[in-house]
Design a protein around this nucleic acid. Structure first.
Length: 559
RNA sequence: GCGCCCGUAGCUCAGCUGGAUAGAGCAUCGGCCUUCUAAGCCGAGGGUCCCAGGUUCGAGUCCUGGCGGGCGCGCCA
């Protein structure tokens, strides 16, 4: 790539000067006037060489500017920066690579094909998914995609807590509504589930089971539990599927008990010598590994706490061959991180396993005020309600556009706006506009032969900047993947779309026919079509990575 | 009280391994409509980067101490 030219030139010049070998840091200057590539080596070497940075910089310039191919000129600027201006062919040559690689442009190999399990959503089957789950679904799915783009083998996993007390409460809640359905006196437990969906569940259950469970019985409750969990799981699956999220595996907590993994985990922990009894309960000395306090594994009544199956579950990840595991969870669960890791370390797993991406909560605002309405769940807005109102693409993008650890304000007014003010539409429009140029020209993008185009004709500043932006895409994907940061992709797409839209509009034939893609000059037209085609590739790849559509044309929704 | 996260323009937020004059969108203001689609375009104003120290050629970024907000600190899940 273009940076390589500069790097080799710099390294050679430094060697000639007898400078100690250092990491040469190259960066893309924000201001185009500062050239295409810049470096601060002269400044970092100043103290080592005991020379003023500008003096070092000037010597480097003397050694480099002597006819280095691809480098048009080098300048010293500011306190000692070196600014490289590349020749246009060096800047635009990258476009050929974009077109050749097409759907795989942006892919990297950092993961070397290694497997990584990404756990996310992991909602209890006790009600409809809320917005926190939605954010998590978008994050987990996209982080998985980012890892795949960087050469990992991502495995999307959903852990079902189908064994605990919450399930019992759900069953009790359904039972109460069931009795009410038949006109009996009953009330939902105080800490039970009060949403409308419980009434729906009870009614549906009454329709299939009839009135034969009006007497309180273990069998009846078990039937209701099974029925409710099954229904809710199906509903959650449908909501996630409509949101474009699919899992490779649903791991059931009950299976940990059924397969004896929980008991085996206790045994293995006992062998570490970190287990002790206190006031009738069984504890693990997690403080040994940095936890705030020791944790109870088995309560004095003989039942395990949540901690134990959690450790057993994460142990299976390691045993299933995942040396890398990422958990996407709400930040309200961060208290469990240290203890789970401590439990795993006691069993010999490495520190820091698994890795966590903790995200903050979501609030929805309309006209600057928070809205909390919900028809079905009562106290919270469901994912489905939001998706039905603004669409899956907009919902996904909005959940991804902020870094996970920051609180997210979902602006409904902006989400419902179908103009370029809405970042999602802005990016999709940019893509559709480029596609429309090809329609207008009566061409398919496949018809564009990058080899036949003279890309040095793309010499306006706007086109050079655009070409640079497009060729930065792979680097961006690498960084976003390494940081587990989908929001960087959103930011990149929005910036790129802005540049694209402005390039497109500048070439409006009624205003500046000479700047239009479809100019009369055949050679220039060919070059611009190649650029347009490269734009299409990058925008589409970015949108797909985020799990959004890349529409060829935009249909206005009239309502 | 202890731990984690956040604090950047009126609002919502970016800001890479510490770099040049701190950026974007929304909102506001000014100018543009017979289109490679004006649900748009061009331009402008707007800043104590929470505060105080420190590290160094250089700090929004790193360190220490405060302040403000969120979350977590059960033999709950």
């Amino acid at each position: 790539m273009s940076h390589a030219v500069v790097r080799t030139a710099l390294e050679r010049a430094l060697e000639e000067m007898g400078a100690p070998s250092t990491e040469v840091h190259l960066e893309r200057p924000r201001d185009p006037a500062h050239g295409d590539v810049a470096t601060n080596v002269a400044m970092t070497l100043a103290s080592i060489l005991r020379k003023p940075p500008r003096e070092i910089a000037e010597e480097l310039v003397r050694r480099i500017s002597e006819g280095e191919p691809g480098i048009e000129r080098v300048e010293v600027a500011g306190p000692g920066f070196l600014n490289f201006h590349l020749s246009t062919d060096r800047v635009t040559a990258g476009l050929r690579e974009v077109l050749e690689l097409d759907e795989s442009f942006g892919k990297g190999t950092a993961g070397e094909g290694r497997p990584v399990v990404v756990e996310f959503v992991s909602a209890n089957p006790t009600g409809p998914l809320h917005l926190g789950h939605g954010r998590q679904a978008a994050l987990g799915d996209t982080i998985s995609a980012l890892l795949e783009w960087n050469g990992w083998e991502a495995y999307r996993e959903f852990y079902y807590n189908d064994a605990g007390r919450q399930i019992e409460l759900l069953a009790r809640s359904v039972q109460a509504r069931y009795l009410e359905h038949f006109g009996r006196d009953a009330s939902v437990p105080e800490d039970g589930y009060h949403g409308v969906f419980v009434i729906e569940l009870a009614r549906a259950f009454a329709e299939t089971a009839g009135d034969r469970y009006l007497e309180d019985s273990p069998e009846g409750l078990a039937e209701m539990r099974r029925f409710a969990v099954d229904r809710i799981r199906k509903e959650q699956d449908r909501d996630l599927s409509d949101f474009g999220v699919h899992f490779d595996e649903y791991y059931l907590e009950t299976s940990l008990y059924d397969e004896g993994r929980v008991d085996r985990t206790i045994e293995r922990l006992r062998e570490t010598g970190l287990v002790y009894e206190h006031e009738g309960a069984l504890w693990l000395r997690t403080t040994e590994y940095g936890d705030q306090k020791d944790r109870v594994m088995v309560k004095s009544d003989g039942s395990p706490t949540y901690f134990l199956p959690d450790v057993a579950y994460h142990l299976t990840k390691w045993e299933r061959g995942f040396q890398d595991a990422i958990n996407v969870q709400g930040a309200d669960h961060h208290g469990t991180v240290d203890r789970v890791r401590a439990g795993l370390r006691a069993l010999g797993l490495p520190a820091g396993y698994p890795e966590y991406v903790l995200h903050q909560m979501v609030t929805v605002e309309r006209e600057g005020k928070e809205v909390k309405f919900s028809k079905r769940a009562g106290s919270y807005i469901t994912l489905r309600e939001l998706v039905e109102e603004v669409g899956a693409d907009v919902t996904r993008y909005f959940f991804l556009m902020r870094k996970p650890e920051a609180h997210l304000v979902f602006d409904l007014d902006m989400a419902l706006d179908q103009s370029d003010k809405n970042p999602v539409y802005k990016v999709q429009y940019a893509h559709a506009r480029i596609c429309s140029i090809f329609r207008k020209a009566g061409l398919d993008w496949e018809d564009v032969d990058p080899e036949a185009a003279d890309l040095t004709l793309l010499e306006t500043e706007q086109e050079r900047e655009l070409a640079k932006k497009l060729t930065e895409f792979p680097e961006l994907i690498a960084r976003a993947g390494a940081h587990r940061a989908p929001h960087l992709v959103c930011e990149y797409l929005e910036q790129t779309a802005g540049q694209v839209n402005s390039w497109y509009h500048a070439g409006n034939p009624t205003r500046n026919p000479q700047l239009a893609v479809l100019v009369d000059d055949t050679e220039l037209r060919r070059a611009r079509l190649a650029l347009a085609s490269a734009i299409r590739v990058v925008l589409r790849n970015g949108l797909r990575l985020l799990g959004l559509n890349a529409p060829v044309r935009m249909e206005k929704e009239s309502d």
